[in-house]
């Protein structure tokens, strides 16, 4: 690893850690009902929203009612986004006169944005009108992120409440998450991005003169080029903060109008992990023991740094085949060195690898380099981060509730070892919680493996793979790992915009999102109904380094056992083939 890489990674981690406490504390206050400073300004709007929507803020919900509200909102979200996409040809704010999105493409994108995945099988600037981008996709970026945070807060209430039949009011949690957290942060970030050159306009595509005229395939001289523009900054800000990841442009965050300067790149990268990391502190604050939040944040950071090091080192070492040919791939004053295929020269190895690991750790999915072009080992780390269940930071809310499920499994296993009833944060963990935890872990995993099996077993699936052999398997495995764990990044190298993949990946996104949320809320309801027990000599402390190590072991063993055979057939065998 170069000194430059160590400096950049160190700065990034320090910047994240510096934001964790203030933002985490602020978010904990927001969900406790008091938003510092913004209360005075936004409280009237909040009351107005409740009045218009007929929400009774005093009425709390049981876990079933809470889950029904999540399902109702998500159903309406999917159907409304689908309708806007299909009708965009006759709707306003479509200066490029784009036609309706195809039915299977509309289904995939609707499900993708409602489930906080933002998998994109389409090219944004040539498929979606400005109206679709603004009113369908960007709105879902806010809603789906706020749903994830609301479910997390409901689970935290399950730990903090005693003998309670309720876990909060979903509509209040949703509104407060958007109004006091996502909207202010997005507004600030969008304004900074505009100042850096991220485009924000409703004008038609721009026709500009080429600096170097060229000729097309038929020999005609080409002197101008159309440059796509649009309301990008407002979408980019929330796509990063809400761990959505869906780019306004097809090239996503490698596009110069979406990520134009070093400062824009750093802030967008920071925004990916900002809320997921800070929510750990909010968790500690809300359960009344900040050490619990730091322990989970420590576990996430350790996995993140190890897999980041693997990716940076693998990419910096370069392609083994080129090394065997005697090509110099070492970093020097004249070249960045390493494997630069699929990477922008302005980002280089470190920024590209850091973004790839952050975006897959955080269930974000935006990319500034093409993961398909990474070395097999460098591509394995981002893929495995998704396969771990998106619990290393993960999506906003969803990452931490996934991590809390792993914490429940860890205390259960520790309880089995010493023969005592497991407990976490003063709540006894029973058979029901373990059944729910099993569902949360198994369902996305099953979707990844069964989906990949379908992809490589069917003619339609195989026909979409661009590369033969193990790399082709990696392309399909990555796609289903991304969809089932609601990440949304694409490995590339797979023609996924077909009814086969749009349908199958859409189903994977739905199962990976909602069939995880339902058991998590069931766990919240079950825990809230229990009484708090005082910790005794047989209680496993859950804020110590020992617990962090146990937790990491459980996450890695589950991830390794579930995916090792598939990874062995894909990136592992490909790395061995390249090395020999």
């Amino acid at each position: 690893m170069t000194n430059n890489a160590i400096l950049q990674i160190g700065l990034f981690v320090l910047a994240i850690l510096a934001c964790v406490k203030p933002l985490g504390l602020y978010m904990a206050r927001v969900y406790s009902g008091h938003a510092p400073v913004l209360d005075r300004v936004l409280r009237p709007f909040e009351r107005l929203i409740y009045r218009l929507c007929g929400v009774n803020t005093e009425q709390e919900m049981g876990w079933r009612q809470y889950a029904e509200a999540v399902i109702a909102l998500s159903l309406i979200s999917c159907v409304s986004v689908y309708a806007v996409e299909r009708l965009q040809g006759v709707l306003p704010l479509n200066p490029d006169l784009l036609p309706a999105v195809s039915p299977d493409g509309a289904f995939n994108a609707a499900v993708s944005f409602a489930s906080n995945t933002n998998w994109q099988s389409y090219s944004g600037e040539t498929t979606m009108s400005y109206l679709t981008q603004m009113t369908a996709l960007t709105v879902q970026n806010f809603l789906s992120a706020a749903v994830g945070m609301a479910v997390l807060i409901a689970l935290i209430r399950g730990f903090t409440r005693e003998n309670s039949a309720t876990i909060g009011n979903f509509w209040v949690d949703l509104t407060r998450g958007i109004l006091y957290i996502l909207l202010p942060l997005s507004l600030i970030l969008a304004l900074i991005l505009v100042s850096q050159g991220v485009v924000q306009t409703l004008r038609l595509h721009q026709q500009v003169a080429l600096l170097e005229p060229t000729v097309d395939n038929e020999g005609h001289r080409v002197v101008t080029q159309q440059i796509a523009v649009g309301p990008a900054a407002s979408q980019v800000a929330i796509k990063q903060l809400g761990t959505n990841g869906g780019g306004f442009f097809n090239a996503n965050s490698s596009h110069p109008l979406e990520n134009p300067t070093p400062l824009a790149s750093f802030l967008e990268l920071l925004a990916i992990l900002l809320i997921p990391a800070s929510l750990c502190y909010s968790f500690g604050e809300l359960v009344g023991d900040r050490r619990q939040g730091w322990a989970l944040l420590g576990a996430m950071t350790m996995v993140f740094l190890v897999l980041l090091a693997v990716t940076v080192v693998a990419e910096q070492r370069g392609n083994p085949v080129l090394s065997q040919l005697g090509i110099d791939q070492a970093a020097s004053a004249l070249q960045s060195g390493g494997n630069m295929e699929g990477k922008e020269t302005r980002f280089g190895i470190t920024d590209s690898a850091l973004w790839a690991v952050a975006t897959t750790a955080a269930s974000n999915g935006s990319v500034n380099s093409m993961h398909d072009c990474y070395t097999p080992l460098g591509g394995l780390a981002p893929m495995w981060l998704m396969q771990l269940g998106e619990v290393v930071f993960g999506g906003v809310g969803s990452g931490l509730y996934g991590m809390l499920v792993f914490a429940i499994v860890t205390v259960f296993l520790a309880g089995l070892m010493v023969g005592r009833t497991p407990e976490y944060l003063g709540k006894k963990i029973g058979a029901f919680e373990m059944k729910m935890a099993s569902l949360v872990i198994i369902l996305p995993c099953a979707m990844v493996l069964l989906g990949t099996a379908c992809g490589v077993a069917c003619d339609q699936g195989r026909g979409a793979i661009f590369n033969p052999g193990p790399h082709g398997l990696s392309e399909v495995l990555y796609a289903f790992s991304s969809a089932s764990n609601n990440n949304g990044s694409a490995f590339a190298g797979l023609a996924a915009n077909s009814p086969f993949y749009n349908g199958l990946l859409g189903l994977a996104m739905l199962v990976g999102r909602y069939w995880v949320i339902i058991p998590v809320l069931a766990t919240a309801g079950s825990l809230a109904a229990k009484k708090q027990v005082a910790s005794g000599p047989g209680t496993l402390p859950t804020h110590t380094p020992l617990f962090v190590i146990l937790l990491l072991a459980v996450i890695i063993v589950v991830g390794a056992l579930s995916y090792f055979p598939a990874l062995a057939l894909g990136p592992v065998v490909e790395q061995l083939l390249l090395s020999n």
Partner: peptide, 30 residues
């Protein structure tokens, strides 16, 4: 074709509601 994809979305959330009630039943059994 729109009917097919919309029916798919509605069917998924319908099954999700069933799952919710199934888990609720499972909890009461426990």
């Amino acid at each position: 074709m729109d009917i097919v994809w919309l029916a798919g979305i509605i069917a998924f959330f319908g099954v999700s509601l069933l799952m919710l009630h199934l888990l609720s039943f499972l909890r009461s059994e426990d």
